[in-house]
């Protein structure tokens, strides 16, 4: 089985889908030359005019992708860095997400918006952020955030096959990580979380790069005698809350981790849903791990002060276990 990076896996996904379906077109700046991360490399050579150079007109790119999708094409859009999608939020939120619903189900909008997110090498305030909570807040969009190459291919094919607008978030730092990736067509269904590791003391819910960090955190915690279950959501919308609740009902403690801001972040939604469903069973408050509510600074010494990594997940899990001890002592 080929051993591919996430970028190679999504490139393979594009080829598999485009060979199957001549109505798939790709739109974006520089994609003819491979895209900012090589994730479109070679597609122009194989698919020619189906790979469309677009001007730096984000609103037009997303508006036209939605319009073309509503008229019978499947569109895959490269937004390069996720920050650039903010120039197209009107078209994304007010058009693509709403067309189907506000026209009474007349339209379908099969489009995928590929966006690179997260910190890497001091890219600073306008090339380092994670916006999944903004997208997840809007009904009508689906939001995908893979953590490994196998999922990256299967989720991207599933996203392209989906008849709805899908935001496909590709964390920059983990793009080079490799995994065994089957050849040909397979899909990882949207809305199905994966249990990466079974455990009994605390459930760590994460996605994208923090799912990778959560697995490392679980190793650290195991050394301290704390058994962590790790859930990789893979898809944020639809949210597989059932898998999360089943796990937390067992462990009685949860940590939700993402690289985006904690304040108003998607972790707050997961935490709230856990507490609504399992309040009386929880041994500790649901902990959140995310970036502090600041812009991402340039200086390497400052960046790490804002953005969390494995250590913060370990600390949050420890805190959950410790707090639950206190709670039990008070109760007894």
């Amino acid at each position: 089985m080929p051993y591919l990076s996430m970028g190679q896996a999504t490139n393979d996904a594009m080829r598999v889908a485009m060979r199957l379906d001549p109505t798939i077109i790709v739109m974006g700046l520089d994609i003819r030359w491979g895209g900012s991360f090589g994730q479109f490399r070679g597609l122009y050579d194989e698919f020619g005019e189906r790979v469309i150079d677009m001007p730096i007109s984000e609103a037009l790119i997303v508006g036209a992708a939605a319009g073309a999708a509503s008229r019978g094409l499947r569109t895959v859009v490269s937004m390069s860095f996720v920050e650039f999608s903010m120039g197209a939020m009107d078209e994304l939120v007010n058009q693509a997400a709403k067309l189907r619903y506000m026209f009474g189900g007349q339209a379908k909008v099969p489009m995928v918006l590929r966006c690179a997110d997260g910190t890497i090498r001091s890219a600073a305030a306008q090339h380092s952020e994670s916006f999944e909570a903004i997208f997840a807040h809007v009904p009508g969009l689906k939001v995908v955030a893979p953590s490994n190459a196998y999922d990256a291919k299967g989720l991207l094919i599933a996203a392209i096959a989906d008849d709805n607008p899908v935001i496909y978030l590709e964390n920059k730092k983990i793009q080079p990580t490799k995994a065994e990736v089957p050849e040909g067509l397979y899909e990882v269904p949207l809305g199905k979380a994966a249990i990466r590791r079974e455990g009994s003391d605390v459930t760590i819910v994460a996605y994208s790069i923090q799912a990778v960090n959560a697995a490392q955190a679980a190793d650290e915690l195991a050394k301290e005698g704390i058994s962590a279950e790790v859930i990789d959501l893979r898809t944020i919308v639809p949210l597989d809350i059932d898998t999360v609740l089943k796990s937390v009902a067992k462990t009685k403690r949860a940590v939700v981790a993402h690289e985006a801001w904690t304040f108003g972040g998607f972790g707050a939604e997961v935490a709230a849903q856990i507490q609504e469903a399992l309040f009386s069973e929880l041994k500790a408050p649901v902990m959140r791990v995310g970036a502090r509510h600041s812009h991402i600074p340039f200086a390497p010494a400052l960046e790490r002060a804002i953005v969390p990594a494995t250590e913060e997940i370990v600390a949050a899990a420890r805190r959950a276990v410790a707090l639950s001890g206190q709670t039990m002592q008070r109760a007894s």
Partner: peptide, 22 residues
């Protein structure tokens, strides 16, 4: 579609025409 966003039709029209061309 009528469109409550001023200028909302520009991108959609371009996309519809792109689809027709393809």
């Amino acid at each position: 579609g009528a469109n409550g966003i001023v200028g909302g039709g520009f991108g959609l029209a371009a996309g519809a025409a792109l689809a027709a061309q393809f």
